[in-house]
Amino acid sequence: MAALEMVPVVSGSRDGRFAKILIWTGGTILVVVALAAIFAPLLSSWGPKEIDPNGTLAAPGGEHLLGSDGNGMDVWSRVLHAARIDLGIAICAVALAVVVGTLLGMLAGYLGGWVDDGLMRIVDIFQAFPTFILALAVSALLGGGFVNLVITIAAVNAPAYARLVRAEVRTLREMQYIDAAKTSGASTIGIMWRHLLPNSLTPVRVIAPLNCGWAMLTLAGLSFLGLGVTVPTAEWGSMISLGTSDVVAGRWWTSVPPGLALLVCVLGFSLLGEGLQERAEARRR
């Protein structure tokens, strides 16, 4: 009997398992990189700024695991130590951008009126410039150093969060639970802190990891151009910059390892961000 056989409808969309794989892969990569950064001194026999007078541009193998650069510094050790700077600056900068952007976005979105107009025009000014050009200008203004670089990259990214959170808050403030909070006697700050903040952060949670990857690229780009971290401090962008001339001469080991490190790290952030986004979508279904 035809009626007894089962008619399946094939599932076309991805489910939560795919998201899980992405999150785990991205997370694992980042944890490995972070561990490498933390235990860098134990993993390499040379210091990051230590110069081997006998071995400039030594090929990989032998005394230097990944060879040494033109200054005679150990590439492996520098790649590991650079993770501290790159990861540190990227995460701090994004954290700062999230805090500042969320605060501005929430004020603009909830209060509306001239506060909104004023804040959003400032955001417009920031967003009118291409991100990297703006980063160049700000870092040229502030100069290098860990704190200044964090501020530079945060300043470039904060406006996007301000817009995101503002849009979210504009929708949320019309929700019934905000009316319910008002009639329960909650103050404006109470409503923002207790109701708007926790509910408006959902998209931020998804964007922030992706943003960490971009922040890392911005930092590397600045350093590559000599505006970020400079030699002798180990940083992937400046290492690549230093090694460009060597590549032409066939000495790939000075710039390829930091480049690969950067790639893996950004990939980790991207996978994590994509995974979070997938999970959010899977939950919505």
Binding site: A2, A3, L4, E5, M6, V7, P8, V9, V10, S11, G12, S13
Partner: peptide, 9 residues
């Protein structure tokens, strides 16, 4: 919907 299995007619 996706993922459903139907029997009958």
């Amino acid at each position: 919907p996706n993922g459903s299995h139907a029997t009958g007619r």
